[in-house]
Nucleic acid binder design. Structure first.
Lengths: 350, 350
DNA sequence: ATGAAAGCGCTAACAG
DNA sequence: CTGTTAGCGCTTTCAT
């Protein structure tokens, strides 16, 4: 009797339910898990006991004995970036739909906190990891590989895990081609520090190819940390104003993502450079904001929900051993969305 | 010997480390937890064994025996809403700083998935729950209360848990007063379905008071689901165009959050209603987007990071029993940020 | 159809 | 200072 009152404050355990229903642990367990081979009457008695006690299985204990969890680790670059926010939301929903719980860690783009985050996920024995951004840090790879946990890179990449993404190179190409087709020749590539990973490289490559194939000007890379007035242009520090208003100025920009593109548009507004009259801008991602009439950003759209769905399906299949073997790559389509941030090159600028 | 090789595929356990270092389980445990009373030499030997084996403590096992986890459940209204995204990010960071891991669940604003999410969190035996949005569903309350897990409502509210938020009523008042002081009299309150919770009610109350105190027109509530052309006005369906361009039209709007405000601005742009010339708009939250030159939304700013920090400190204190007793409420300051979406009432509209 | 027993990997007294 | 011994709450054979 003394013992049986212990269920009052603490969470009731399977044992409490068992004694309440007058059966054994295992029977309760069988009922909870919905296994067959339990008579209807006992099943009912157990159910009642569960309700009366407000019993809720302890996932921790279950997962300890099963030696695997149903938690999915999700590594996010920057939750405040609308692209990641949307992805995170989709990932969470699809994970839940397949019976997994998402555990996010935000890395702020730096590989130190990325490593720390992955470390934490691993200690929690996550069943798999979804990278929504990956710095490329080899230590992270080491850790993950050593623990043999299924990994998928969604909208980012590495060779040592499954990848689900758009064809970033093609995205870079069609975005740049749109500019070139509009008559632009001095087209720059813009990136902000947070996202200089594998997919950034692929987008740059697409940009480079498009520039080369069209016999346009030499490729030019702008690495900018908004809202600074300066940036590194092909490695050397210069003012943005010089780039967009000086002689031999850039007339169009392909940005590696929408946040960068919008930041640039903001800069242009601030210093009186007109978009698209003075400079055309193309982004990447098609975040919701890009569609606002006041922003109207031409951009390369990624099918976010599709990416999330396929990514989750991928890790889940690995976890559930429905798929084995070497890393797979799944590519989905990108498409250009034309809005008002781009326009044909003005005659006097040719 | 057969047994000792078992560490190869599976995760090495504390026992593997123990035998490798030639000590007992507990000694390893003591080293891992950094307890004093372990000689420097054994400590070193254990450390070496840990590195060699790549041992990583199983948090699950630890938490099972300690009967508490270091996971914090975070209930988010809509991760795709920039306000929540920013909050989520801050919450994650502050949680990590205090040694907790965040487990998010997105509720899409509906109480059904909110309940399911909380259920999952509870099964994972989270140490505490942070609500970034709360529907008010009594079943959720039931569940949480019954499990006696510390709860904090950040930027939202309920009477049965700690609250950390801005003074929403005051926010509603100063936002509305700004409009009234600019000469507006027919000021409406705008809300979108996702956020009609306790803080929405408080903001509405602040709005109502301001309207009444100033002898302005009767309060008017617009419930709108963007991007529809219609909305419920004080309970009856009407077209938005009628509201903003018909006779006795509304000349200013106080929106319960920035997302709603921006959606309205977007609608206005689409149908040719000028902001602020034809209608002034005030938002709530001051999301990053609101600060863009092209959006320039006047809004009531919430100190997001401060809210997150205090909220985490609050649950953490409860969890760690540094604070006991009845629910506490912590209020932090709101402030009005004036931008270009508001202007004095045009003479011909008075 | 049900129960008994042996762990999962770890912490927490308590001995030595 | 270090080792021994119980569990934490559950799943999972294996008997009955």
């Amino acid at each position: 009797m003394i013992d049986s009152t212990s269920a009052e404050r603490r969470h009731p355990t399977i044992l409490d339910v068992a004694s309440q229903a007058g059966v054994s642990k295992s029977t309760v367990s069988n009922v909870v898990r919905g296994l067959p081979g339990v008579s209807e009457s006992t099943r009912r008695r157990v159910r009642t006991a569960i309700d009366e006690l407000g019993y809720r299985p302890n996932v921790l204990a279950r997962q300890l004995v099963q030696r695997r969890t149903s938690i999915l680790g999700v590594v996010v670059g920057d939750l405040a970036n609308p692209f990641f926010a949307e992805m995170a939301k989709s990932v969470e929903r699809h994970a839940a739909a397949r019976g997994y719980t998402a555990m996010f860690c935000n890395t702020e783009g730096d590989s130190e906190s990325e490593l720390a985050g992955v470390e934490t996920l691993l200690q929690h024995r996550v069943a798999g990891i979804v990278f929504l951004a990956f710095s490329g840090d080899p230590r992270t790879m080491q850790e993950v590989l050593h623990h043999q946990v299924p990994v998928v890179f969604v909208s980012c990449g590495a060779e040592w895990g499954d990848v689900v993404s758009v064809d970033d190179e093609r995205g870079g190409r069609i975005g740049t081609m749109h500019l070139i087709d509009s008559g632009h020749r001095r087209v720059a590539y813009l990136s902000i520090p947070e996202l200089e990973d594998e997919s950034d490289r692929a987008r740059w490559e697409g940009y480079r190819q498009a520039m080369k194939g069209a016999g346009a000007g030499a490729p030019m890379r702008i690495s900018w940390s908004p809202p600074s007035d300066q940036a590194r242009i092909d490695g050397s520090e210069r003012t943005l104003l010089e780039v967009f208003a000086g002689r031999g100025r850039v007339t169009a920009v392909f940005a590696s993502n929408d946040v960068a593109a919008i930041a640039l548009q903001e800069f242009a507004d601030r210093v009186g450079i007109r978009v698209p009259e003075d400079v055309s801008i193309v982004g990447f991602d098609d975040v919701p904001m890009a569609g606002l009439a006041r922003i109207a950003l031409t951009t390369v759209a990624q099918p976010r929900d599709e990416l999330a769905r396929l990514g989750i399906a991928d890790v889940a299949d690995r976890i559930e051993r429905k798929v084995k073997g070497p890393p797979r790559t799944t590519l989905v389509d990108v498409s250009l969305v034309t809005r008002r941030s781009t326009a044909p090159l003005q005659a006097d600028l040719a």
